[in-house]
């Protein structure tokens, strides 16, 4: 039972990571991040359900709240970058190159 949840979470995490690594669009990268965070949430809830520990649910609620703020801030940054650079392609956002 638990392993099904964990497999689902692992698959979601892998898909999210794949998205983050391969998408060139900054919005796509943010979506990948959402998937990874929610994979973690599934893990938390699954363990909380199996072990009967309330702390897992509470932590999942926190994660959701943080995720929302993260998306709000992240999207705001993306919009500002778009206004300045007229692009949100991650390949072109390389001002930190050594």
């Amino acid at each position: 039972m638990l392993s099904a949840y964990l497999l689902l979470a692992a698959a979601m995490f892998a898909i999210g990571l794949f998205g983050v690594l391969t998408r060139r669009n900054a919005v796509g990268i943010l979506l990948g991040l959402e998937l990874m965070l929610n994979a973690v949430n599934i893990n938390l809830v699954a363990f909380a359900h199996v072990n009967g520990a309330v702390a897992g649910w509470v932590l999942a609620l926190f994660t959701i709240a943080i995720t929302v703020t993260e998306v709000a801030v992240g999207l705001a940054i993306v919009i500002v970058i778009f206004r300045v650079r007229r692009t949100v392609d991650a390949d072109h956002l390389n001002l930190l190159r050594g």
Partner: peptide, 10 residues
């Protein structure tokens, strides 16, 4: 070594 620092987050 600076070649490693591409500046791309990915």
């Amino acid at each position: 070594l600076r070649q490693l620092q591409t500046g791309r987050a990915q």
